[in-house]
Design a protein around this nucleic acid. Structure first.
Lengths: 211, 211
DNA sequence: GCGTGTGAAATGCTTCACAGCG
DNA sequence: CGCTGTGAAGCATTTCACACGC
């Protein structure tokens, strides 16, 4: 069965909201409430629950613990998961700092860089390896998912190398579309394009306001 | 007329590819070529061109200069555009560094922070102001678009403040969905969720590989 | 009632397929 | 002929609306 990307996105989002609610001591949520917090419709929430094979909703809504369990069962690797980051420039190190304090589910276990000054150093508790060690380290740590934070000109080549070394998912921060085999899942985070997009629509709504 | 978000995204992407081609001395592209580089279908490219009211395609494809002009006419504010960033923690400063070298179309003109130690300082050529100056500075600089890089717990409140001060577009890096008036365009960049998503699908395709 | 779970309708985006033109 | 521009078909996702259970 094929789960749509948009559903996975929202389910991750629901999880965070549910964790917040749980921390506040809430025991159940109804679809309307969860929808309100997530900024979607209640029907959407219930639809999304269907992919969890939920049927744990009662007349007072969903028990939060039950939902969290099912979400974890779907999204998480039971044994935890190591990911890598390629590129330890400004952006790469910022990402390392950002993710170093994130939960225990996903751990940024290693970094890769080609710069000899970087190789062997440790950033935020994460050791940086050279390209020659890539295949070995990725195999040893069971890494399938990599964040790509290298300069645009080398992104395609590094991505291909990563795939050769076993990567099947890439979170690409470089501002170039990657051409990779179909079995590799690529998610693009292009901050420059995102900012241009927001500027465009923000200008557009300002214009509407004026009329 | 309502332009879909996805079209604006792709047009920004096309622009970058066209600029690369131009730099290489190419004069025209056909839809197939552009599609290949962007990782979409040729039909998609031609469809997207329709929102540019293009009709500048000839039998040998589109003249690149013509396309670039029309894209600029659609996406860019003719007088350039100032944007702001709220939050100058690790992430905020990394974003400032990242955008400080970007093109002249969008300029990160000011930063905001509540920390008295930060107010008055200059990061990457960008002065940091306190909350009291927000309304004045945003009006002076004509800022409608803001990047939000504050901690999750204060994101909603800061966003509301920004909207009061005239923001109509927010690029939100905080891991919470914002509830704002409908006229405000919000784009969410949630790196943790993005990484979880990639990990999920990457695990999924690994499983398929095994079969 | 009140809220879930889900067929069925509606919407919106993408792809097809082909007329038209240089 | 090859490539654009576009109506029409095809898909995917979202929303509606209502049966069912507590």
């Amino acid at each position: 069965m094929q789960i749509p990307v948009s559903v996975v996105e929202r389910i991750g989002q629901y999880r965070r909201i549910l964790q917040d609610l749980k921390r506040d001591g809430t025991g159940t949520v109804c679809s309307h409430h969860l929808a309100e917090r997530a900024g979607v419709t209640a029907a959407q929430v219930r639809r999304d629950m269907m992919v969890l094979k939920s049927t744990c909703g009662t007349r007072h809504g969903y028990p939060i613990d039950c939902l969290l369990n099912r979400i974890a069962g779907m999204l998480d690797n039971p044994t935890g998961e190591n990911v890598a980051i390629a590129g330890t420039g400004n952006l790469g190190r910022a990402l390392l700092a950002y993710f170093s304090m994130s939960g225990p589910r996903l751990r940024v276990a290693v970094a890769f860089d080609t710069d000899p000054d970087k190789i062997g150093r440790v950033f935020n508790g994460c050791r940086c390896h050279g390209p020659d060690d890539m295949a070995r380290v990725m195999a040893e740590q069971g890494i399938r998912t990599v964040m790509l934070a290298v300069p645009a000109r080398s992104a395609q080549a590094v991505a291909e190398r990563l795939v050769e070394c076993g990567a099947t998912g890439i979170l690409n921060f470089a501002p170039v579309p990657l051409r990779l085999p179909a079995h590799v899942f690529v998610e693009q985070i292009d901050m420059t394009l995102a900012l241009e997009k927001v500027a465009f629509f923000s200008r557009r709504t300002s214009r509407e306001e004026r009329t």
